[in-house]
Amino acid sequence: MGEYTGPLVVGAVVLGLLIGSFLNVVVHRVPLGLSVVSPPSACPGCGHRIRERDNVPVLSWLLLRGRCRGCAEPISVRYPLVEAGTGLLFGLVTAVVGLSWSLPAYLYLAAIAVALALIDLDVRRLPDQIVLPSYPVAAVLLTLASWGDGDWGALLRAAVGGAALFLVYGVLFVVKPGGMGLGDVKLAGVLGLYLGWWSWGALAVGGFSAFVFGGVAGVAVLALRGGDRKSKIPFGPYMLGGAIFALLAAEPVAQWYLRLLGIAPSA
């Protein structure tokens, strides 16, 4: 697989740039209940349909100097950043997962992670239109990965992981009303499927990291914005960030922790 890793990662980055362009549409339209395929994208200033040559990820924004070709209305820098960020994330995931049957599953996870994190930051909501279909998509893609790899134990781990995270978040939702949104509970099940399929270590690290990242963000909000302990922050981005972090670094983190406890050998 090593000789194909470089070209595979480059291809994944290009694919991520293209997917990122589409995710910009998803992030804008899904919270509004609009179709993501029709009508075609247009300038919000002059209403002119965006030409194909002006829809090349990142490059078009740079060539147009961040303005509409027709009316010179400024185009938010967020658009190329989402495209570039998705491309980078696709490249990182591909470098870790490699050329395998599971790669499509984890690229799908990367794509919805970008969309859901941005939507949650924008409107404090994790839309069912993205989260709920992710269950059957994950089931199909992870089953295909287990079939291709001949590893049905991974699929069992996925089922346990999905149920476990869903249950944990469900209990938190019931025990502490307002502290956890129902959308977070639904998303937890999806993330548990992917983390469990990858490894038990990824499930543990991903589940724990979400609360670490969220806690750090909460402290930062208190310090920088003068909020109080009742200030609410969207938790979805930290759940998703924890899952991606676990995918990229679960094994080193798990080994470090086991060595810290004196369970794993230092070598």
Rank of each mutant, 00 (worst) to 15 (best):
W198T: 11
H48F: 08
P80S: 09
A264C: 10
M180R: 11
L141F: 11
W147C: 11
W256G: 09
L240N: 01
V25N: 01
L121K: 00
W256H: 03
I50T: 15
E83L: 02
L89W: 10
R53H: 08
S266V: 15
G262L: 12
G178A: 05
G183R: 06
G47M: 09
E251C: 03
V123W: 00
G189D: 08
W197R: 10
K176T: 15
S146V: 07
G150F: 04
P265T: 07
A254I: 04
R53V: 13
L142C: 09
H48N: 12
G242D: 07
G236Q: 06
A267S: 13
L258S: 01
A202Y: 03
L165H: 05
G196P: 07
S35V: 06
M1T: 10
G218L: 12
I75S: 08
A267R: 05
R78F: 02
V140F: 14
V26R: 08
K176Q: 15
V174M: 14
L167W: 10
G192S: 10
P39C: 08
C43F: 03
R125S: 08
L193A: 14
L191I: 04
G66A: 03
A204W: 07
A139E: 08
W197F: 14
V253F: 06
V221F: 11
D151G: 01
A42E: 12
P39L: 05
S60M: 06
E83D: 04
V30L: 01
V26S: 01
V36D: 00
D228C: 00
W200M: 08
G2I: 07
V212R: 00
Y194S: 07
M180N: 11
L64Y: 00
S146F: 04
P133K: 10
S209W: 04
V175A: 06
L59P: 03
G162M: 05
Q129H: 05
A138D: 13
I244N: 09
R65G: 00
R69L: 14
R69I: 12
E83N: 03
L116E: 06
L89H: 07
P40C: 09
A210D: 06
G153E: 06
C43V: 01
A210V: 06
G215E: 14
I130N: 02
A12H: 07
G179Y: 08
W256D: 10
P127R: 01
V13D: 02
K186Q: 13
G242H: 04
R65W: 05
I130V: 03
P234M: 09
G98R: 13
R49L: 05
Y169T: 14
S41C: 05
S60A: 11
L121Q: 01
L103V: 13
I112W: 02
V9G: 12
E251Y: 05
I75E: 05
D120W: 08
L99T: 08
G201H: 08
P40Q: 10
F208T: 04
G227T: 12
V58S: 03
W256K: 06
M239L: 14
A42T: 11
L32I: 00
G196T: 12
G85E: 09
